[in-house]
């Protein structure tokens, strides 16, 4: 009789503790997701810009969000979690690219085919828009990243400077270089198209 009571008590305590933990975890999760939601697409786009393939970018995004989740206690110390996430994304992608080069598995855009492109997308890709995509593709990594952060994600120079740990003037210089290169190439193609 006494034994049964003891056992029941133990079971009750264990289940209560478990429930408590679960509720706490869920609260934390939803809170975390709320802070992450606004910039998860940005992380994904930046990763895709650098890693080229959609699948790799998805993996990178997942990995990054998980890393953030694991370090959620430290996140409070940062002023801008978004900027911190962007820095992490940049570092992660550069690491991936480096390890790929080291293992001789360089990803070349021409031999990579996206398997989920719809017809619309393909038509669009044949368009002049895809030309721009390729032009950006051919830029050096740093310029690629800066174009992405400034012209697509529309961050201020100060923010980009913090993310990349560079001076704003250095960013302006390489951004200007990138924009001019793209413009020249476009102009060339445009002229060929007309004549």
């Amino acid at each position: 009789m006494q034994l049964l009571q003891k056992r029941n008590l133990l079971v009750i305590i264990v289940t209560a503790a478990k429930k408590c933990c679960e509720i706490k975890l869920k609260m934390k999760q939803s809170e975390f997701l709320k802070t992450v939601m606004p910039f998860k697409d940005k992380v994904f786009r930046v990763a895709k810009r650098l890693l080229v393939s959609t699948e790799e970018a998805e993996d990178a995004t997942q990995e990054l969000l998980f890393k953030l989740w694991r370090n959620k206690e430290k996140l409070k110390e940062y002023k801008s979690i978004e900027a911190f996430a962007m820095t992490m994304t940049k570092n992660y992608c550069f690491d991936r690219l480096k390890s790929k080069q080291a293992s001789n598995l360089k990803l070349v855009h021409s031999n990579y085919k996206e398997n989920n492109t719809s017809l619309d997308r393909q038509v669009e890709l044949n368009d002049s828009v895809s030309k721009v995509h390729k032009l950006i593709e051919n830029l050096p990594e740093q310029q690629k990243l800066i174009i992405q952060l400034r012209d697509i994600e529309e961050y201020e120079f100060d923010e980009i400077a913090k993310m990349l740990n560079l001076k704003p003037t250095a960013i302006r210089v390489s951004l200007s270089r990138a924009r001019k290169t793209i413009r020249e190439q476009l102009l060339k193609q445009h002229k060929y198209g007309i004549s």
Binding site: V43, R45, V129, V132, R183, H190
Partner: peptide, 18 residues
Amino acid sequence: EEYQALFGYFSTSKNERY
């Protein structure tokens, strides 16, 4: 006109979602 593709590309790129 050559800029049209550029800015068009920027705005369509921004719509990509995870």
